[in-house]
């Protein structure tokens, strides 16, 4: 295994842990936190690729910068939605948001 493979392995494990949290937990805020873990995993993969692949040298860092900025925007809007929903439902458990269920 090359150096980049170890970083990709770490990114993949972090991504799977985050995906498990998104799939299994009930609290919406915790789901947002696990989404952040998944975005971090993708960033690790991008930065590792751009560090070790001469064809795309340095491009991954730019991508990761933009992803971090978009993650900040996403967290702001997502948690605003969570708080607005909490005001109506008095709950942050994802499976209790079933008002649109037929």
């Amino acid at each position: 295994m090359n150096a980049v493979d170890w970083y990709l392995l770490l990114a993949m494990l972090l991504f799977c842990i985050g995906a498990y949290g998104v799939l299994a937990r009930r609290n919406v805020i915790l789901i947002v936190m696990c989404l952040e873990l998944m975005l971090n995993a993708v960033n690790i993969a991008l930065v590792a690729m751009s560090n070790f692949m001469p064809g795309i040298a340095g491009r991954g860092v730019l991508f990761a910068l933009f992803i971090i900025t978009l993650a900040a925007a996403e967290v702001t809007v997502g948690l605003a939605i969570v708080i607005a929903n909490y005001r109506n439902k008095r709950s942050v458990q994802a499976d209790e948001f079933n008002r649109l269920k037929g």
Binding site: M1, N2, D5, M12, L13, S50, P54, G58, V61
Partner: peptide
Amino acid sequence: PLSVGVAGVVSAALISAQLPGVGSKALNP
């Protein structure tokens, strides 16, 4: 089992695969 299965399959692929065009020199700007 879903996330453990995905992790197992992808890590097996990573270990067996040889990524093309990979060096060991640091290139980050």
